[in-house]
Design a binder for these strands. Structure first.
Lengths: 198, 198, 198, 198
DNA sequence: TATGAATGAGTTTTCATTCAT
DNA sequence: CATGAATGAAAACTCATTCAT
């Protein structure tokens, strides 16, 4: 009835799910395939997760939770808001760069889920977007960012750009160096692409 | 064996698909439901489309083709590259604003499809991204945009921002005025969000 | 969504279900087995029945409906209430005697279903029990049956006796002649088993 | 390998099974649920019972054995065969009246089992039916019952009537007083429902 | 051209039972 | 004696596609 959310198998199953989904695609990732990859029986998955959807949400929550925690840790070590934003972008690119499987899963496969599941994924993302918002507020307070900014739009520009760039990297089979794009992306976001001759 | 890509039923089926998918969601849009909405028999759909995937791609191609054509027409009436970019954004927002069903389908539902289908959708989008690219080149040529820009990144920033904003509007049940965001988005893209006191 | 309740396959599937259930038992009567027996595909069953439970209820309703109709027709040709009761018992025994498969299904297998399904079966049986009741009332009116009878108890005695006898016959692999028991059962119900010497 | 059929946990598990089955129904009475109700581990049940079927049969055997023993004890204190039959009916109704859970289990839930299990239940019932038979023989010997009775039919009438009445009482949520029906049922069985004016 | 009845492959989840501790 | 984590077999149902009419 209730499920265990701890133990070595819990982690093992989530990692197996990432591997299988990255390799075979979301719609070809049957429970039995994930179980085989994890080295457990099909039924064992249901000792740790309520159902398949619960496994997918847990996957996203675990991975994204750690993702955000690490990002926050790094940002706190920066002083200027510009450096903080740069760190956010760098961490985003870096963390997905070192885990191609996870990148495939979050950028492509997990978006194929139904509205309901994506709504729950959206809740997890909320914390990340709030982090972005806090940076924007800080930039405005410190008079680094324009005081009249529409927070929502800025947030969508930052997230939309980072996300689109990452997806593009994944769809190009991780062929180029994603982390190298952090600086130019950061510069473009802050300064726009207008040519200022002076 | 081969299918007809013309005739009044061809259009009727595509429009029925948009309506059904917008209303019931991608995974609840069975061929039989679309056929009923279109007022034809299930089998008739296969006279006009090779299979379900072909119907979805055709849907996207037809709708997006018109979308891009109209956008290009409007852009050509502008002279400065800044106005052209503003027109691109305005047209994007405007065309989805007037067709809520289409917006739901392109922003949410059609993204739940498998990798293969999305690759084909990507091909259709290519023309749009090339249009964006041409604007960037033009801006650089005219010394309005910075000469050292990484075209790819700028393209992703423009498209990512527009797309994220539109998706956000759809997920908020079209509650706010999307077209009103064209100007601030345009301004942010070109000038960034840095505060220039002078 | 909605199902067809007519056509030759409708009957064929119901008869196949009776055969399969009688032969393999309720819990070994998978849809695929019934479909094979009926000479149709698994999916075809779902064109005629909402789900497996609906098939079982329909089976009982069709068979029992005909059973009751025939019984009523015969009873109406009798004049005295005693003959009517005898006819009821005779028809009950006769109709199950000629259809061993149906007898197995109604007496043994269909009783293994869950409470919900049996509640619906109970509704079908209601008509039969009301028929029994009407005979009791008639007997009392005509002063053939005792005026102080508790209708409910008498009904349970009649039905319980007939049902228990039939079940016993089925569990004995239909070895004895069930129809021959109609008269003695009828006599016992009406006169009891007291010895009246005079 | 072999199981223990004694000890406090043996009783506790059987009682837990009765409670769980009465409350949740046969098909929702998993071993784990029964174990929890009994306050033991799932595996412990297999120290006392060979398997789930063995538990159910043991349940029926224990409860029915006591039921029959008590009934025989009471009957032996009666002298006339009519009083003995009345006592049989009274004891049947009384013992199930005071244990609603057991009544639900024996009248409704345990009948949902497969043919095999019910065959074994039938064996347990045999002793009860033999008791009924002995009363019938006694009645005939003492010239209280008719000498030409077909024992088997009479037995089925007695048991069928009692059983049908009890089931009806359970399905009516024990709303009426079952024990009050012993006398009228007894009277009807012996005298039938014919009206004898004199 | 158009129909729509028929097909049948494919997957999540439950739960009795085991056995290492 | 007792535990409870792990096992893995088994089945109802959906729906894209076909094809005889």
């Amino acid at each position: 009835m209730t499920v265990k959310r701890k133990g070595p198998k819990y982690e093992k199953i989530i990692d197996a799910a990432v591997t299988v989904i990255a390799k075979h695609g979301y719609h070809q990732s049957q429970i039995s395939k994930i179980a085989r990859e994890a080295g457990v029986a099909d039924g064992t998955i249901y000792l740790y997760f309520k159902n398949k959807e619960d496994l997918l949400i847990s996957l996203f929550r675990e991975k994204m939770g750690r993702f955000i925690d690490t990002t926050i840790d790094e940002i706190e070590q920066q002083h200027s808001v510009e450096d903080k934003l740069l760190t956010l972008i760098e961490m985003h690119f870096k963390q997905l760069s070192v885990d191609h499987e996870l990148a495939i899963v979050t950028q492509l496969e997990l978006r194929q889920t139904n509205r309901e599941l994506r709504a729950k994924i959206g809740e997890v993302l909320k914390r990340y977007l709030e982090l972005v918002d806090s940076l924007i507020y800080e930039g405005i307070d410190e008079k680094v960012f324009h005081p009249d900014l529409d927070i929502r739009i800025v947030r969508q520009m930052i997230f939309g750009t980072i996300d689109e760039t990452t997806t593009s990297w994944v769809m190009n089979d991780h062929r180029f160096d994603l982390t190298a794009l952090a600086k130019p992306v950061h510069d473009l976001l802050i300064n726009g692409f207008r040519y200022r001759s002076s």
